[in-house]
Design a protein around this nucleic acid. Structure first.
Length: 402
RNA sequence: CGGGGCAUAGUGAAACGGCUAUCACGAGUCCUUUGGGAGGAUUUAUUCUGAGUUCGAAUCUCAGUGCCCCGACCA
């Protein structure tokens, strides 16, 4: 994509009302725009990142036999009265209508499955969606880490025995670990024992270590699993008694729901036994923020390759010279023909400093600079965002070297 | 929801109750520039909304709205 066509601009100064690092960098780089507290637009660059993560999540869900569907966000009151969750403060309600906005979907999926799971032969089943959720946070904060509208993947599983649920729960655990690994967060993300909240007796979270996090976790030195402060009693399941305390942000949560919702909605097997359910969530837009919080330096964002909006940032330092421009265009074609996603800074009215600073701010993993200097050696300069060193690569070798 | 703070151009800031609301960056036009945010000329505002005090309000008072932070809360 030619940067001259990109409608968003970068900003030199941070917005006065954003203290949160993820929001500051994402706004300055032109990835997101704030509309209100906890309400953000994903601009073209930000949307590309969001889509990358969404696709990673989708692939891993499909790998554990989950099927994607899309439920409505607009929800009729009845089912929520049934579960006594109509009057919870998280729920946005539409004035003068018996409708609310979705913040979780047990009330939709459970009655839905009743029409399709008619006997044990239909079990187990796993369904998920990727959808905007609405949650009336008493205090939205930390940029896109805690929004009032956010993108979430929610998966629900249905079983007729505990063993089946336990097996699937373990599969989801592995799939989640894979997702964080693919997002570059493996070293910073811990499986964490957590409280069940209002949903079940116990659950697991995936927590990514960052000072921007809202939770405190204790990582067991012996087994490497973590325990959320809420349920921490100074010893680990493995027997370990030494812990490292860290601040962390919850990037995923898995629950064994049991039969609570299947009982309320009468989702039963042929013997009349209520089905056992599990539910599993990942905040996809929150992941974008968590990644920025983990991967940045004083100049800007440093995207992991798997989620970066583009893989190569090509910068033409042509100084208006038409020959250098032509050569840059040529290199743009070469890179594109190598099936790379290239952002091409072909802007005419920017100084070298502006282009290079924008490049660092946007955080695309690989920078390729074309200038008079490099062309004298029939080369381009290649630099990784996360490294300081640069190297010259001959244009004829470019295809193989990148 | 308790406590605290803030609201002035696209962004960031300045302005004692008093002159035409100032500056930087950005953006537009013209010219000169191009390896780390370059220079000159020129253009760029209903001071969040409503009421009040006053000869006079960006500035003081009241109400509202919005935003940020701490806490409580939190699939």
């Amino acid at each position: 994509m030619k940067q001259s066509n990109l409608f968003t601009k970068t900003f030199k100064e941070t917005p006065r009302d954003e203290v949160s690092l993820n929001a500051q960098l994402l706004i300055r780089g032109g990835f997101i725009d704030k509309l209100g507290a906890g309400i953000y637009t994903f601009l073209p660059l930000g949307l590309r990142v969001l889509n990358k993560i969404e696709n990673i999540v989708r692939e891993e869900m499909n790998n554990i036999d989950a099927q994607e569907l899309l439920m409505p966000s607009l929800l009729p009151e009845d089912n929520w009265q049934a579960t006594k969750r109509w009057n919870v403060e998280e729920m946005y309600k539409i004035k003068d209508e018996n409708l609310g906005l979705g913040w979780t979907h047990e009330e939709v999926i459970t009655p839905l499955m009743k029409k399709h799971i008619l006997s044990s032969k239909d079990l187990p089943k796993f369904v998920y969606q990727i959808q905007s959720k609405f949650r009336n946070e008493p205090r939205a904060k930390s940029g896109i880490l805690r929004g009032r509208e956010f993108l979430m993947k929610d998966l629900y599983s249905f079983h007729n025995n505990e063993k089946s649920l336990d097996e699937y729960y373990e599969r989801v655990k592995k799939a989640y670990a894979k997702i964080y690994e693919r997002c570059g967060l493996k070293e910073k993300t811990y499986l964490t024992l957590a409280g069940g909240g209002t949903f079940s007796s116990s659950s697991h979270e995936f927590q990514t270590i960052t000072p921007a996090g809202e939770d405190i976790i204790y990582i067991c030195k012996k087994c490497g699993m973590a325990i959320n402060k809420e349920v921490f009693d100074k010893r680990c399941e493995c027997g370990g008694k030494e812990f490292i305390e860290e601040k962390a942000i919850e990037v995923g949560n898995i629950f064994k729901l049991g039969t609570k919702y299947s009982e309320i909605f009468g989702l039963k097997d042929e013997g009349g036994k209520p089905l056992i359910m599990g539910c599993y969530g990942i905040g996809i837009s929150r992941l974008v923020g968590a990644i920025v919080e983990v991967f940045n330096d004083s100049k800007g964002i440093i995207w992991p390759e798997t989620v970066a909006p583009f893989s190569v940032h090509l910068i033409s330092l042509d100084g208006g010279d038409s020959e250098i421009k032509a050569k840059s265009d040529e290199i743009y074609s070469i890179l594109q023909n190598s099936n790379l996603e290239v952002l091409y800074d072909n802007r005419d009215d920017k100084t070298a400093g502006e282009k290079l600073n924008d490049c660092d701010l946007m955080g695309i993993p690989l920078r390729v600079v074309v200038s008079k200097k490099t062309l004298e050696k029939e080369s381009v300069e290649v630099k990784k965002r996360k490294e300081e060193k640069t190297e010259l690569v001959k244009i004829k070798d470019l295809k193989n070297e990148i």
